[in-house]
């Protein structure tokens, strides 16, 4: 897990949550460069891409990954 003194925005953890439409979504929480944590919500397709880009087989494996891994979804 990223330490509080990390300056680069990094993933703190990711949890499954219900979406508005009844589908499960993945809420990825990130610690920003100022130490504050917020979240971005990924749908099933985007979450799958992020997991693959991070070579993660579960949300736990996303911990500590740099935020730039999320950019993988932009590159398709």
């Amino acid at each position: 897990m990223a330490s509080p003194e990390t300056t680069e925005t990094a993933i703190v953890d990711a949890v499954v949550s219900p979406g508005h439409d009844g589908q499960a979504v993945l809420v990825v929480r990130l610690r920003h460069e100022n130490g504050v944590v917020d979240a971005v919500t990924l749908d099933a397709v985007t979450a799958e891409k992020v997991l693959e880009a991070c070579n993660a087989d579960s949300p736990d494996a996303l911990r500590g990954q740099p935020w730039t891994r999320l950019l993988a979804v932009m590159d398709d």
Binding site: V16, G19, G22, Q23, A24, V25, L26, L51, D60
Partner: peptide, 17 residues
């Protein structure tokens, strides 16, 4: 809010497994 799913698509309900 509920989560619904079937085996027809890969729901994130199973992402921790």
């Amino acid at each position: 809010i509920d989560i619904s799913f079937s085996f027809e698509v890969a729901s994130l309900f199973f992402v921790t497994q």
